[in-house]
Amino acid sequence: MQAKKSGQSEHSKLLLSEDSRRREGLIAFIFKAAAVLTILVTIGIIVSLLSETIGFFARPEVSLWKFLTGTRWQPLSSKPSPENFGILPLVGGTLLVAGVAALLAVPVGLGTAIFLSEYATEKLRKIIKPVLEILAGVPSVVYGFFAISFITPIIKTVFEGWLGLKVMYFNALSAGLVVGIMIIPMIASVSEDAMRAVPRSLREGAFALGATRFEVAIKVVTPAALSGIVAAFILAISRAIGETMAVSIAAGSTPNMTLNPLKSVQTLTAFIVQVSFGDAAAGSINSQSIYAVGMTLFVMTFVMNLISDLVLRKFREVYE
């Protein structure tokens, strides 16, 4: 090997030999192929979802218009008809859970980000950041267990025991709260990154004008980092929409057009899981329906991620 190498360089002096040039080219090609493969994954996702979604809408029992506007989702009924394939209850359930999650996670996540970026000492950051990372790394099925074994009983006690409201065992509130906890780390860390990217000079200018630390954080740093923070919110809500296991466990599987978080709802993801356990045969209407629902989910999250990515890019352009 060694001898061959030195012989080669002697032979070719400064120029590369034909062999090694070909090898360099081949290696570069392999690496490029791996990178281009990531585009194929996206294409694969779209083609997979489309392949069965098209079959689904080609059926006489389904109509695209009724699918997008219908308010009843009963695909497992014995007599399928377009009236039973309205996606809105699933979208509504998904948004209800994501809404509850956002109500918890947006203020708490933003508060955490402000504290970490503007107040916390280096020592405290070194404790809190890993805790947030652990919180983000806990599997979703564990959060589902936590929801059903810990949060749901508390909700029952508070709303049913103290306030006399009817609470279903599976409810959107419990699922939403637990999803909110799951996305707090994401909001906190992305927002904090945005806030730390705000130049020090802006803060010092405000301090010199006599602002308190809180005023600097709220009136100077937060507005300056706003697009980064907004990107974090969108990204986190998109994550909440795609969350599956915790929601399947805690929110139940009753498609419900409701704004009442104490009722059971079914999300887009929970429906897909429900059908997958039912062992629907390939090509059947049930099997195809999960692709239509998956397509809806993919489009929703894809658009949100794209917006968040664009907003974040704009933000980076301002400060870098």
């Binding site: 990531t38 585009i39 994954v41 996206t42 694969g44 996702i45 997979s48 979802l49 392949s51 069965e52 990204l235 998109s238 994550r239 929409i241 795609g242 969350e243 599956t244 993801t269 897909i272 899981v273 997958s276 999960i290 692709y291 998956g294 989910l297 993919f298 999250t301 894809f302 991620n305 794209l306 968040s308 990515d309």
Partner: peptide, 21 residues
Amino acid sequence: ININNLAGVPSIVYGMLGLTV
């Protein structure tokens, strides 16, 4: 851009990709 977007695709969608492909 594509890799960033793939990182945000819900995991359940990958399940459908795997099932189909």
